[in-house]
Write a protein that binds this DNA or RNA. Structure first.
Lengths: 260, 260
DNA sequence: CGGTTCGTTGAGGCCCATCAATCTATGTGG
DNA sequence: CCACATAGATTGATGGGCCTCAACGAACCG
């Protein structure tokens, strides 16, 4: 099945055959990098290290001197209110950078935490900044990564502020399917290791209500979940419900077309 | 009154005496720019042009070849749901860039619209990118601008997802007072040209409910509004209500300390 | 002075939170 | 291999925060 291959590909970005642990990463696949710049980045990257689920990689108010590039597993950013409420400003999928902010900021204003077991490649911030200063393509890549994050977060804000719970869930599922490159025709199929409570923290809802909305989507035949694998048999309908238009992910010039 | 001077300062970033229309702008005041880089940016900027209130500068799905730097007035980004719901992912204050995304993206995934009469300085995207490639400080400045936008939006997501309407409003007022550099001791005082409907679109609420929460804050003596000027007599209490901590604005290395 | 925008107020209702219990799956130690 | 513990999913009952609809007042303006 194509879908299975895709979910395998998205679950692990780099393969043993690749020269660099960064291979397949958005940082590495950036359309703004020359071969030379790609090579320079590769050399600066540390080997991947494995991290258990539910581990904080960085805590809000603290900093790191390393950029964390996730190559396997799901990671989140989270922030909390004084009352204990938790909200994810981002879900970080294989290939994404977890803490781009560390490039310029001493202290992060969010925490970064693994949702599943994950593989993380580290890159010295100092070195990354120095490389950006020497190589325009690397600098542009960082700008690009930040702008795409921004675009995604902007749509999350729209969901959080103006969409019903059902629409929010549908929109998030559509976004994940596209970001994981798991859309195959009008179907989508990918590993879905996240709990309903974590979904709730992404959507600004309670786990109980996420459960009910998930049941609704299942009853409509728009979502099938089995063995932590999710199938979206009718992506088009789900997109209509969520008001999802993939344009904001700006995949036109990125990895997707590079592979084509 | 110091407060009045501050509100004047924040309402108009550049002054007639400044050589460049960019003067006072976050782009121009970036801590990462050398004098030389500042000068190069100045030369690339067009003179400021005035725009009426409620005018779209760019529409979602379209693009511009110009970076729009707001030097006077308030501007917003907005997105809409299929049902007509509107949400601001950002409020753009004097000194901010309205459409950083245009640097790299053909089409914007939000619209940019004036809330008040505004002055806008344009900067060719092509030229800006070329300058970023030649001048590391300019490239870092763009990264910095994008990361700060991201940090702000992340906190908005926390508000939208997990804070009550009262907390949301308090948090936004605190954020605006700091971004406008209008905090003076435990008081704050600044021009407040935004309607309650526009506030609602920032907060993911209805105008009716914003009105009620505003009344609540006024009744508590935490907000005073007269002649489109807002006064926060007790910033500390307002921050406690909103769970506001200005760290996420990352002002430590920026304009504020540059002026000191 | 009439029109328009914005702020204000009230009544009623719904979406989603809250609280609590049950069920299932997984894992773990004896 | 079973008893038990734990995490996650599910279900039900109840309530509240915010929305919706509607009307009115106030300020501004040509």
């Amino acid at each position: 099945m194509i879908a299975v291959q895709q979910s395998a590909r998205t679950a692990r970005v780099g393969t043993a055959r690749d020269a660099s642990p960064l291979a397949g990463t958005r940082l590495w696949n950036s359309p703004y990098l020359s071969r030379d710049e790609q090579r320079v980045l590769e050399e600066a990257a540390s080997p991947a290290s494995s991290v258990a689920p539910n581990v904080d990689l960085v805590r809000e108010g603290y900093g790191t001197d390393r950029l964390l590039v996730v190559t396997e597993g799901w990671v989140c950013r989270y922030t909390t209110t004084q009352g204990g409420g938790r909200q994810f400003p981002a879900i970080i999928l294989p290939g994404d950078v977890g803490n781009l902010d560390s490039l310029l900021f001493e202290r992060l204003d969010f925490s970064v935490r693994t949702l599943t077991r994950a593989s993380v490649v580290a890159l010295s911030c100092e070195q990354a900044l120095a490389l950006a200063a020497q190589h325009p393509g690397i600098a542009q890549t960082f700008i690009w990564l930040a702008l795409v994050e921004n675009a995604i977060l902007g749509k999350w804000a729209l969901s959080l502020g103006r969409r019903s719970s059902k629409e929010r869930l549908a929109h998030l599922l559509c976004e994940l399917s596209v970001r994981l490159d798991a859309v195959d025709g009008n179907e989508s199929h990918f590993a879905f290791p996240i709990t309903q409570e974590q979904l709730a923290d992404s959507l600004g809802l309670t786990a109980v209500h996420v459960n009910r909305m998930m049941q609704y989507l299942r009853a409509e035949g728009l979502v099938v979940i089995a063995d932590r694998i999710i199938t979206l048999p009718d992506v088009e309908s789900l997109r209509r419900i969520g008001g999802f238009d993939p344009a904001y992910l700006h995949l036109d010039r990125s990895v997707a077309t590079q592979l084509a």
